[in-house]
Design a protein around this nucleic acid. Structure first.
Lengths: 205, 205
DNA sequence: GATTTTTGTCCGAAAAGTCGGAAAATCACG
DNA sequence: CGTGATTTTCCGACTTTTCGGACAAAAATC
């Protein structure tokens, strides 16, 4: 689970208060006092979320929002708005903020909100990882000679059969429906050694 | 995107008000007046989220929560609590509610919260779908003779090569690093006809 | 420690696959 | 309808693979 929270807040008192609240909940606060300082952390593979004040001396919270969304539209940004500043909050949500909190905010609410944002982030990252795995596997064929590709697959099949039989060549041969000697031929050609599959106790059943 | 919101609310005035709010935002409210009425909709593959009142005449909102979590721990439940009933709200969050809203609630807040919950639900369902696909593909090798398995893969490789070259055998042969004739030999053996890969306009580049 | 089973390697004949050349069939195009 | 390019099939020599049998070495069983 991702637990990083990149905090952008110029009021140092509030900042350290937030840091403390997060640490009590086993989250990982990364406190910064300005957008410029925070920029470098904001990447598409950032394993956390952003918590930013919306009113800051140099830059606006909306700038943060746009920057983050440009880097990764699925990186949640939680904004801290002034008390009952509903229009600003609504605008923030419309522009893609994950959520907003009214200052001063209830610590529980803060944690709940960040937890949700982090959960969302985890799911998104997990999703991407699984997707990558999927496309890796789907491209059964990337390039190379036909024989190269077949050899690669042949190796996989034989190694799996050996693994399933704990490295017993004769058993693997039976499983593969070929005579023992033939399997030895294949193994010699592919430089597969049966010993490598023994003892490892990964045999199925 | 999933947009269903299963509403459990005994106050009919509030219920229809919620329904109206959701419909204005293109969400799909499923209004029910009691837990018993809502039960049958709650399944692990429910493509939506649950919005329930926490105080009801017959059953408690926590019962809903437990029931839903038993059916699917990743089905978000948003609870409606009485105004500033902080302890109940905190207990709800601890017991796994996705979020809570204080009654009477701001329509914008309601929509924001439900959108987040629905987003979460979509991600979870998507994740599961991709996972299923993954395990399907991971079983590269199920059984059968070595030659059967190799033949299967050989067919895949050749068909992909043909598809990439729009059914041009000579081009596919070049790509596979073997003479045309040899590829024809393979194709004859595997009963692959090149015509089947022409015209379909699926050629890459 | 003797015996039986299993492993890993080698041999050789039959079977299958490779691949160049060439002819037949088909397609493309003016 | 020809003409050239491409696809497809057929042939035959050459190479590789298959697979049963044999055998020494290692392991397991008694």
């Amino acid at each position: 689970m991702t637990t990083k929270v990149l905090i952008i807040e110029d009021d140092s008192a509030l900042r350290s208060s937030i840091v403390q609240t997060l640490e009590l909940e086993d989250l990982e606060p990364i406190p910064t006092s300005s957008f410029t300082q925070a920029r470098r952390s904001i990447r598409s593979n950032f394993k956390g979320v952003v918590l930013s004040d919306i009113k800051m001396p140099d830059r606006d919270g909306f700038e943060v929002l746009n920057f983050v969304r440009a880097r990764d539209p699925d990186l949640p940004v939680v904004l801290l708005t002034g008390y009952s500043d509903v229009p600003t909050a609504m605008r923030a949500m419309k522009e893609g903020a994950y959520d907003y909190l009214e200052k001063p905010c209830n610590p529980d609410r803060l944690i709940d909100t960040l937890r949700r944002a982090l959960d969302h982030r985890s799911l998104v990252l997990e999703n991407r990882a699984i997707r990558d795995e999927l496309v890796d596997q789907q491209s059964v064929v990337e390039g190379g000679t036909l024989s190269e590709q077949l050899e690669l697959h042949e190796r996989k099949v034989i190694e799996q059969a050996l693994a399933m039989e704990n490295g017993k060549v004769s058993m693997a041969a039976k499983r593969l429906g070929i005579p023992r000697n033939t399997l030895y031929d294949h193994m010699t050609r592919l430089r597969i050694v049966a010993k490598a599959f023994r003892n490892s106790d990964t045999g199925i059943e």
